[in-house]
Simulated assay, not measured.
Amino acid sequence: MHTLIIIDDEEEIRNGLSRFFPWHELGYEVVRTFDNGKAALDYLLTHPVDVALCDIRMPIMTGIELAERLHREKSETALLFLTGHKDFEYAKQAIIFNVNNYIVKPTKYEELYAIFSSLKLELDEKKGGSERKIESDHGSVIRAVKLFVNQHYQDVTLEKAANHVHLNPYYLSSYFKEKTGENFSDYVLRAKMRKAVELLADIRYKTYEVSEMVGYSNAKNFTRTFKKFYGVTPREYKQSGAPSE
């Protein structure tokens, strides 16, 4: 688990983020919350913390002032700004002080999930004293997901694949893209199309039957997708031979 503190002078936001966002699913533990930057700084100077999610405009010490001080102290805490102010000057200062990201209120669940999912991968690699073990773990998850897709191509979904490897769907989507360079949905489509080619080569199956076998209840949708993917229709493929991806 990566340690996390939340800093915001608005109690409703502070408590809402700390209590109701699924941090544990992403691999984070909220260890403290603060209502101003000075209290957070005092804590950070004596306690190692992996991540700080911080509002910009606060009493006593602003988020910018906190970022400047942490930068001066060469702190390894990853700092993310949370603010309702779309102000370019703030954004520029965030860049100067190596702030990791800039999240505008009101926060969207999917955006927050994606940002912290990506950050977790960075923190894992930074923290892991054994890179080979981390990469091995990453590879095992990706292999398991790909195997699941190729075994259940007919009705596979992101939710089913995520459940199979015990990950949240939002996290798996970001994770899969990060590690393979390909969207999960694109990989599923490729698996379906490859299976379709294999089945179309068997003269026993008609196009509408292949369509159903790879998860398309509507044969017209299957034909349209197949042609977009391979450049020929299923009928044309049967007549002329194997298409190229």
Results as ranks from 00 to 15, higher is better:
147 L>C: 01
31 V>I: 15
25 E>W: 00
23 W>Q: 13
218 N>K: 11
239 Q>W: 01
187 Y>E: 04
193 M>E: 09
166 H>T: 07
203 I>E: 15
58 M>A: 12
109 Y>E: 15
167 L>C: 01
178 E>Q: 09
199 L>I: 02
138 H>W: 10
10 E>N: 13
34 F>M: 04
71 H>F: 15
151 Q>P: 00
183 N>V: 00
159 E>I: 06
20 F>Y: 13
98 N>K: 13
98 N>T: 02
169 P>K: 03
196 A>I: 03
61 M>R: 05
7 I>W: 13
70 L>A: 08
203 I>V: 06
87 D>E: 15
230 Y>F: 15
197 V>D: 09
234 P>M: 11
118 S>A: 11
45 L>A: 13
129 G>P: 00
91 A>W: 08
187 Y>D: 04
119 L>W: 07
185 S>I: 03
26 L>I: 06
130 S>P: 00
83 T>M: 09
109 Y>P: 02
111 E>V: 11
106 P>I: 13
237 Y>K: 12
106 P>A: 09
18 S>V: 00
187 Y>G: 07
143 R>M: 08
128 G>F: 07
155 D>W: 03
104 V>W: 11
175 Y>R: 02
1 M>W: 10
148 F>Q: 02
151 Q>R: 14
159 E>V: 10
28 Y>P: 08
91 A>I: 12
86 K>W: 01
4 L>F: 01
131 E>Q: 04
218 N>S: 05
213 M>D: 01
